[in-house]
Simulated scan of single mutants.
Amino acid sequence: MTGEFIKLPEASKAEKPREKIDSVLSFSPRTKQYKVIRILTRQICDPISGRKEYEDKVAEIHTLGTRSWRRVESATFMLYGIKFPTYLNGAVNWFRPKFQKADSIISFDVFNEQFQLMPAPPYKYNSHDGEDKDLISMGVLNGHLFICDASEFGHIRIWVMKKYGVPKSWTKVFSIDTENEQRWPQGLYHPLRKFKNGAVLMYHARNCLLYYDPTRKEHKYFKVRGSESNFEVAVCIPSFSSIKDAVMGDNVEVLNVKSRCAKFELREEVKPLFLMEEISELASDFYSSSEESC
């Protein structure tokens, strides 16, 4: 909202050839530091056959206000692509399907910079074969870590961890039967908010919102009209805080997308204004050409 941004330090020459980078922003309440965690994955291939032999995974961390990345020591099984990155209680969590015959959650303590493994809820693991594993989402619902399981056809189950870090505190708060209901799209669901009346608002991967009231067993289906491309819905709290207050140290320059001199603004900096003018011109030309063709 403020238009401020900073540039992260570039990777070293040894890191540039890596083929995949997963990253997530985190925060340590104890030190008031923001940190970026990234997992770099490089495929190691046989030089003769060209076949992939294994994947080399490295976890690194960057503290905003410094000029470098640091290697994070961790066990190999912790290094996994960041899926559904979720920040809660000073830790970043992401979902790892089917680790050692069961789904699991990887948690990274931002202050101690250590990984740990937490078990997922006790749902049926045998239903997560094939593409079904892509129908499980994770996030924060009303201050609790949640897992939403839609892998079984006609059923949506939502679990919450009532005490963070305590596996036994996993509690199933929703069990929705959609098999005999109309207009319930199948696929991945992501709960956004649980209301005082017990209802829940969920985002569906097919670009729609769905409101479900378990007491009345009624649901309302909301489609965003005019949206042709895929989009994602997330809970956001706007803030006018400056990045200058978040970045510690004098090693980082805080930049701004807006011109430093208000009298000499670039065309890109007032793009919305020019965009509206261009739309008006295009519309005018279209209707004029249409009338002439008729």
Rank of each mutant, 00 (worst) to 15 (best):
L275F: 12
S289E: 12
L79C: 04
V247G: 03
D109H: 03
K35Y: 05
I105S: 01
W170A: 00
L8M: 09
N207R: 13
E60T: 14
C261E: 13
P238H: 12
G249R: 01
T215R: 14
Y212K: 07
L273R: 11
C148M: 07
S290Q: 09
K83C: 02
S290E: 09
P29Y: 06
L25I: 10
H190R: 11
H62Q: 03
T76Y: 03
V36F: 05
L117A: 00
R206E: 12
I237P: 06
K163H: 11
K223W: 15
L141V: 05
Y34T: 08
I237D: 15
K7H: 13
S107H: 02
I156C: 08
V173A: 05
Q100Y: 13
L64F: 04
G139D: 04
M202Y: 02
C148Q: 10
S74Y: 02
E15F: 14
L201F: 05
M276K: 11
K83N: 07
I279H: 02
S280R: 08
D149L: 14
T41W: 07
Y34Q: 08
A246Y: 03
K20N: 15
K263N: 05
K13Y: 08
S137K: 07
V247M: 03
S49E: 14
W184G: 09
F108V: 04
R183S: 12
I21S: 00
N256A: 07
R70D: 09
S280P: 00
F264R: 07
D149I: 13
I156E: 07
K168V: 11
F195D: 08
V36A: 08
M202L: 13
V247H: 03
M161D: 02
D250L: 09
F5V: 06
R71Y: 10
V254F: 09
P47Y: 05
R183L: 13
Y34M: 09
K163E: 15
D177G: 09
Y287W: 00
R183C: 13
C148D: 08
E4I: 06
E113P: 05
P9Q: 10
L88H: 06
E218G: 14
S169T: 07
R260F: 01
E131P: 14
K16A: 10
R18T: 04
D250S: 13
A102E: 09
A11I: 08
V233A: 13
G226C: 03
A199W: 04
Y87W: 01
V254D: 06
Q33V: 09
S293Y: 09
K133H: 15
S280C: 06
Q43T: 00
G165F: 10
I243M: 08
S68Y: 12
G249L: 01
I237Q: 15
S239P: 14
G198S: 02
E228W: 10
S293N: 03
N256R: 02
K168N: 12
P191Q: 06
C45F: 03
Y189Q: 14
I39D: 04
L192F: 08
E4D: 07
I106R: 01
N207C: 14
F84E: 00
T215P: 03
Q186P: 00
M202P: 04
F108A: 02
E131Y: 15
S284H: 06
A199T: 11
E181A: 10
